[in-house]
Nucleic acid binder design. Structure first.
Lengths: 358, 358
DNA sequence: CTTTTTGTTGTCAACGTTGTCAATAATAAA
DNA sequence: TTTATTATTGACAACGTTGACAACAAAAAG
């Protein structure tokens, strides 16, 4: 019994063993701990021989630099993702994109959901930067559109990357990852026009929502390009929700001439539109074509699957993360350029040629 | 011009001013920095007078303890949320619940999406604990069901809280937040039976999915309670997706007698069921009642809105977070009890009395 | 052969905090 | 009043790491 206990204690000791530090590695390799630090940080001026030996010891001890100590001594190794977005799927994809980049580069992500309408958002973020030693921040709309906030953060010495979409020209406050909603709206509309649709409805216009403005701009541009007329009555104001999609669709279906195609500003609206069309005994796409935007799960959680525009959120976020990290690493802040993403149409089954085509 | 430049530099200096440290506060208050530390940590034995003065200075300088330094010196102040769940909405709600608790208590959250099927998941988590100085971990299904993994983590000296649902009896490995799927499935089924339905279909059984097992158990229990018979053919195996929901519904609708009510194992299946019912020219709920589970956004993104079971993910997550934090703070690990959540039915419009009731 | 340059390695302080323990002041007990 | 006790405060080391700089060895230049 006593023996067994002893054995247990021993095993415990082994499994509970302290995490190895840089000094443990140094002792094992027979060098000063500073040399190990050099190897770990891939600094110059370490002889090949020593480097190999140290790397061997690192592997052997399964040593991992202590993030915390590193951050304290050196520059921050964490970045924050700040968002205020009701769309879970969007947020998760962004998070995953950022995390994938962070893992590659040994950085850490702090997520910070917030309320963009709050007066306190600036203070709140400042506090977060402060206490969590955040070096960089990724902002999504609508926070990224808030110039005042961006300036405030820049003044706190944080690197900021803004993810922006929509029509408004980007300023030079901070690097931007721009999502070209205008062009995407243009492409998608052109597709519908080329199918032969003459009366397109645009659902989900929202004056304060940059993305919707961009998409609408593209919608108009595409019409203009082929000399088609945009019917102002078919541009409907509404929320980005299923319910609103149903309501807006009900409204446009009662108009005459009835539109043969619906450009929904996002997939959720489109899903609502599909549902309402069905309630009105219209077949999709035979009687009415409906397209969405975002390529969110909604687009395949309705029937038929939605033709939509793919928004590569993962990649966008990863790009933003790569930018912040680059900014954090180089002293020269303004060496980082903004980047842009163009979006592609995903053809599925909710749009086709109008049936009673003349 | 020169003067203006000078002024600019000055303003900059002010805005860029270094974050105040505990020593700055100490100097201002005329005490040693250790005393400030005591005030910050609400330790005993600080005279009321000094305490007030220090607090005043803290406010004045807008001092915030440096999380990083704290973690390094003391115990960890971060916890990790580890998940492998395709359901964005679920993950976001959980995250928000945990964050709300973390903010209250000054802790930090590290999110860690992972692949539960990977062989490396243990190693991966160990590395994370190590480098990020994680003190506690919250696991969700299916990771939380993996006893081996839990043991492994416990051996790494991490506090673990598991969120579990389903029918299987919890073990005593680590504290658990248990979600009572069985009882909820029972309640929801009883509701349908009380409405007068005789033929209920159960969609989304999945042998390896604890939640579905629990819900099915409740489904059976409720039948047994009132002496009703469960038709085995109406228990359909399938994924938790819209598409699978459509397919399973198609299958049960072709059976005879046709079920008058469908118990879908989650809202997504239910949404697919509603859609299929509609395709088959059945009205919901007049011709067929359909209920979901989870109260996810899907439940209101279909028409009619789904009667479902509310799963308070935010609260569940917050409870789990509170537990881990408590465990991290007290040395006495096993003072923390497990806790359980019961779920409530949300009555909406997708279920009613069967119409051709005898 | 000496001097300079270059490359490699080590020593030490510092980051901002908390734990330990000693020093002092205030209070209670003798 | 003196002593013992307690409450308050401070000095200092430590956590694991990196930056600055010094020390040394080797190679190049004179």
């Amino acid at each position: 019994m006593l023996l067994k206990d002893k054995h247990l204690t021993l095993t415990r000791k082994i499994t509970f063993m302290k995490k190895p530090t840089i000094k443990d590695v140094a002792k094992l390799a027979g060098v000063s701990f500073k040399t190990v630090s050099r190897v770990v940080n891939q600094e110059q001026n370490v002889s090949e021989e020593v480097k190999l030996r140290v790397q061997e010891c690192i592997k052997q001890l399964n040593y991992q630099p202590n993030h915390t100590a590193r951050v304290m001594r050196k520059s921050p190794f964490s970045l924050a993702f700040v968002y205020d977005n009701p769309n879970s799927h969007y947020v998760i994809e962004m998070q995953n994109g950022i995390i994938s980049e962070c893992r590659k580069q040994g950085f850490e992500l702090v997520i910070h959901p917030t309320d963009s309408r709050s007066e306190e958002v600036g203070k709140e973020l400042a506090a977060m930067i402060n206490s969590s030693q955040i070096g960089g921040i990724i902002l999504t709309p609508p926070l990224s559109e808030n110039r005042e906030l961006v300036t405030f953060l820049l003044n706190r010495d944080a690197k900021v990357v803004r993810i922006l979409s929509g029509a408004s020209a980007p300023d030079n406050l901070a690097p931007v990852v721009h999502v070209d909603d205008v062009e995407a709206g243009h492409k998608l509309t052109s597709y519908l026009l080329e199918l032969g649709h003459k009366h397109l409805a645009f659902l989900g216009y929202h004056a304060s929502h940059e993305s919707s403005l961009g998409r609408l701009q593209g919608f108009k541009d595409a019409h203009e390009e082929v000399g088609a007329r945009v019917d102002k009555n078919l541009i409907v104001d509404g929320e980005f929700t299923f319910e609103s999609g149903m309501a807006m669709t009900k409204q446009v279906l009662s108009m005459s001439p009835r539109p043969t195609a619906i450009f929904a500003c996002n997939d959720e609206i489109a899903a609502g539109a599909v549902f309402m069309a069905r309630l009105k005994e219209l077949r999709v796409p035979e009687d009415i074509s409906i397209v969405g935007f975002e390529n969110s799960p909604f687009s395949t959680q309705t029937w038929p699957h939605l033709t939509t525009v793919n928004q590569p959120n993962f990649e966008i976020a990863a790009a933003a993360a790569a930018m912040v990290i680059k900014m954090m690493q180089s002293k020269d802040v303004h060496s980082v350029d903004s980047s842009g993403f163009t979006l592609d149409v995903v053809l599925r089954d909710s749009a086709s040629k109008p049936q009673n085509d003349k």
